[in-house]
Computed example of a mutant assay.
Amino acid sequence: MRMHCAPLHSFSGAIVGVQGILEDFTANKKAQDQLKTYYHVIEHSPVAVLISDNKGQIEYINPKYVELTGYTPDDVIGNNVSMLYARDQASAEYYQELLHEVQTGNVWRREAFNVRKNGEGYWENISVSPVLDENGQIYHFVVLKEDITKRREESEKAKYLAYHDSLTGLSNRSLFYDRLMIAVANATRYQSQMAVMFLDLDGFKEINDTYGHDTGDDVLKAVAEQLKTVMRKGDTVARMGGDEFTLIVPEFEDIRDVELVAEKILKSLRQPLTEKALLITPSIGIAFYPQHGINHESLLSHADKAMYQAKKQGKNNYQIYEPDQETTNPDRHQYNT
């Protein structure tokens, strides 16, 4: 309880007694203790917290908010939250969407890209909640932010590795099949031509056996870079595994255009590709849609057979699939989608 005491005086001014007021403020004391606890929790929260009034004027930010954004209390308190979203038109539109949602009493949540005070970009998980008084009117907004940059980067990396070869960075078999089916579907729809190329490195096993797998990996990465240099932006270059690569040429005017691509590949690999000045040659098989197949399975199979025919012709050359040359290597595996 709280007690206030004062002397009681007579008319002559003498103290004749004491008068006092006793007040039970248990509820107020509990509320104060709760407020101290809540303040302590927010101050040490691992989540960035910003509190504004119902007009968006910033009243409080916790230390984690300063750490996350770089903005100090002196930078933001007393200013409108719009200052944090007015760096460009896109951010301004983003803020208007947020404002409309919370002013109707809804909680707004999103993963978004933001920029710290120093200009560094980061990904955040953000939620903005309206706080209602006893009459159901909004009188504050609470903003919670969490840095999810690392999680986003790990997610993007996992997504990338699911569709790309970890050694060369090229499309892997899964992505190749997806793009091949799309290319076939587009060629069918627009009655156009497309080509599939199957490339195998000649004598790659001997390089691995002689110089080791690290050198073999260097050769594969160098070949991948050469293929990316030769192919057009809209083409697909993939590593199927080992020393086997596949390529998709989705559009061309004349078959000769694809042959020129094969010749460029042969020429680009006629140079030392690693520090050991190793030379590598490819054998390339080519199959065309619709001449050699109308689905992705037959096109890839026929390009594979044409590649083996290039091996039979002395390697370091390309061959276009010919139905009357159905000789295949019984040791070569079949590719299934």
Rank of each mutant, 00 (worst) to 15 (best):
K233V: 13
A195S: 13
L161S: 02
D324T: 13
A303E: 04
E263A: 11
Y321H: 14
A27E: 14
E146D: 09
K311T: 08
I58A: 00
L68Q: 03
T229G: 13
T104F: 02
G293A: 03
I61K: 01
I148R: 10
E97V: 10
D209H: 14
G169L: 00
L98Y: 02
M1V: 14
G121N: 06
L132R: 14
I58Y: 02
N135D: 15
T236S: 07
G56N: 11
Q19K: 12
P7S: 13
Q96H: 15
V237P: 10
G17K: 12
A310N: 04
E156M: 08
I126E: 04
H333T: 03
G293R: 07
A238Q: 05
Y85I: 01
N329R: 07
K267Y: 09
S301F: 12
G241Y: 00
D214W: 10
Y335S: 04
G20F: 14
S12T: 13
Y60D: 00
P282H: 04
Q271K: 15
Q19R: 14
E253H: 14
A162W: 02
K315N: 06
N135Q: 15
I265E: 03
F141T: 01
L199A: 05
L220A: 03
D178E: 15
V107N: 04
D257T: 09
K305N: 14
V102L: 06
S155W: 02
K276S: 11
I207N: 05
A31R: 15
E326K: 12
Q19T: 15
P250E: 02
W123C: 08
N62Y: 09
I320W: 07
A14R: 13
I77R: 00
G203D: 12
I15R: 13
N62P: 07
M307D: 04
Q271I: 11
A187V: 13
G169C: 02
E156I: 03
L278R: 10
V49E: 01
A183R: 09
E326H: 13
Q309L: 10
K311E: 05
T26K: 06
S127A: 09
D147V: 04
D53Y: 12
E153Y: 04
R87A: 09
V219Y: 02
G20A: 15
M181G: 06
G78R: 08
Y122P: 05
T149S: 15
H292T: 10
A112Y: 01
S298W: 05
S52F: 04
R87M: 03
G216W: 09
A162C: 01
D331Y: 08
L279T: 12
T229P: 00
K157Y: 09
N316L: 03
I284T: 06
D331M: 07
H40V: 06
T328W: 12
K55F: 12
V66N: 09
M3Q: 13
Y160Q: 02
V115A: 00
V49P: 06
D209C: 12
F176C: 05
A86M: 05
P63D: 13
L22E: 11
L273G: 03
K117E: 03
V258Y: 04
E134H: 14
K315V: 02
P282E: 01
R109T: 08
A224M: 03
L68Y: 03
E93W: 02
Y321E: 06
S82E: 08
L35W: 01
M3F: 11
K221N: 01
K205Q: 11
D218E: 10
A310I: 07
V18L: 15
W108I: 02
P250S: 10
P330Y: 06
E124A: 06
A92R: 15
G169H: 00
V107M: 02
D178F: 10
V47Q: 08
Q137I: 06
A92H: 11
